[in-house]
């Protein structure tokens, strides 16, 4: 076998030891994430760190909390935007809101909310549909730093043009600029949108059910998990959703190959929006 193939085997071994160390020391479990994704993130951090190899990263991660927290950030899925995939929100507004309106009180869980852009998008939509005042949104992410910035709701002003275009495509009814205050190079989300949102740390891999909810939004998170972990998280969602509850996934995610998939009807194939059956 050539040297480069042996090197690759050693790299994979070092990666699994690093993930083991992070789990044992800090309790965050990435061992069932997509290996190709994790490898790219680790090799990227290695090249920025100036360290010689991944084993040196492991040593540093054990002894240097800040370095470990940098690795956790590398593993976070933190690319998002307001009204990402506007069609998704258009469908929610047209078809899902009427369902939610039949409940006296609505609970929504946004799992893996990253920096919060899509949480505020949902809040805006609910407000415009006169549902926000009887809604409670739980927005969760495993990463404390990320949850902090979601809670702050401060975003770079250079994204506002895209956000505004998305908002309009998603069927927005008002002027998008009503929802934020611009300040130099950033915008801050209006406080009235924050009042019914609870931001908190929750780890889909290791934590359990915390509430019974009418809708779960979890977009572009499951794609980073291997099939076993996808099934495990889907069990968690299934236990949290009321009968007839709504599940919104990312465009390229699907329940088709998951064990709990049979409990759901797909109500929008393109946007991957599902509804839990009543008799399961």
């Amino acid at each position: 076998m050539s040297n480069i193939n042996i090197d690759n085997q050693n790299i994979n071994l070092e990666i699994s030891l690093l993930l083991e160390a992070i789990f044992n020391k800090y309790g965050y479990d990435f061992r069932n994430y997509s290996k190709a994704h994790i490898k790219r993130r680790i090799l990227h951090r290695l090249s920025l760190s100036g360290l010689d190899n991944i084993s040196a990263m492991t040593h540093k991660a054990i002894y240097d909390k800040n370095f470990a927290s940098q690795i956790l950030l590398d593993f976070s899925i933190n690319v998002t935007e307001m009204f990402r995939d506007p069609d998704f929100y258009f469908f929610i507004r047209k078809e899902v809101i009427p369902i939610l309106k039949t409940y006296p009180f609505v609970k929504i869980w946004h799992a893996g909310c990253a920096t919060g852009e899509e949480v505020y998008s949902m809040a805006i939509l609910l407000k415009e549909e006169n549902l926000y005042d009887r809604t409670q949104i739980y927005a969760t992410d495993f990463n404390a730093k990320v949850i902090k910035s979601a809670k702050d709701g401060i975003y770079s002003i250079k994204n506002i043009k895209d956000f505004t275009r998305n908002y309009q495509k998603a069927g927005g009814k008002e002027s998008f600029s009503d929802y934020y205050t611009a300040n130099y190079n950033s915008v801050i989300i209006d406080n009235s949108l924050k009042k019914n949102i609870v931001f908190s740390e929750h780890n889909l891999v290791t934590d359990s059910v915390f509430a019974e909810v009418n809708m779960i939004i979890c977009r572009n998170v499951l794609i980073y998990f291997n099939r076993d972990l996808q099934n495990k998280v889907m069990n968690l969602f299934n236990d949290s959703l009321v009968p007839g509850g709504i599940l919104g996934l990312g465009t390229k995610e699907s329940l088709q190959f998951l064990e709990k998939g049979k409990n759901y009807n797909c109500i929008d194939l393109k946007n991957k929006i599902y509804r839990k059956k009543y008799n399961v």
Binding site: S34, A36, H37, I77, V79, N220, I223, Y224, G250, K252
Partner: peptide
């Protein structure tokens, strides 16, 4: 030899 998708930066 399976495919993965990511929406990282």
């Amino acid at each position: 030899f399976t495919l993965s998708l990511s929406n990282q930066e």
